[in-house]
């Protein structure tokens, strides 16, 4: 994002020299195999995770199809990358917001989605769900809270 360069970094103004953590949202609006967007997004998320920012993923419109269970790509000769969403917790990406209206429009419910969990370091490594189904209004709020939005 071009606008990032001119934002001042908090250079230890409080004496700590702490890095500034920004809120990054990756917005996913495309179905998985028809275009390259979904896979590209996932790869950018995994690479970007090294920068230790506050990362969330949003799935809306056809993006919700990325998380459906039982994907099997043997017949179309491309890699099935749906299991990789389950590795996101290892990369400390633990907030996957899925829009309820987008699911409903497509005749889907949360039960049609993969089970994706993370282990909460601050809660004795308890396993917790990463997927959070939110309303469209909540999704709009989540978008409004971000410092950077990357769309795919």
């Amino acid at each position: 994002m071009a606008s990032e360069a001119d934002k001042p970094e908090a250079e230890g103004a409080e004496g700590g020299g702490a890095e500034v953590t920004k809120k990054f949202l990756y917005v996913n609006r495309k179905a998985p195999y028809g275009t390259i967007y979904a896979l590209e997004s996932l790869e950018v998320v995994l690479i970007g995770a090294a920068f230790e920012q506050d990362v969330s993923l949003a799935f809306l419109d056809d993006g919700v199809y990325q998380l459906t269970k039982n994907q099997d790509t043997k017949g179309i000769g491309v890699k099935n990358f749906s299991p990789t969403y389950k590795a996101l917790g290892d990369y400390e990406v633990t907030k996957l917001y899925v829009e309820k209206e987008s699911l409903a429009e497509r005749g889907l419910t949360e039960a049609d989605l993969m089970e994706i969990t993370y282990e909460d370091e601050d809660d004795d490594w308890a396993e917790k769900p990463s997927i959070r189904v939110v309303s469209r209004e909540e999704m709009a709020e989540i978008m409004a809270e971000q410092d950077v939005i990357l769309s795919f």
Partner: peptide
């Protein structure tokens, strides 16, 4: 299991 090779810290 995950179809990726993990990054070193992972």
């Amino acid at each position: 299991e995950y179809q990726i090779a993990p990054a070193i810290r992972v």
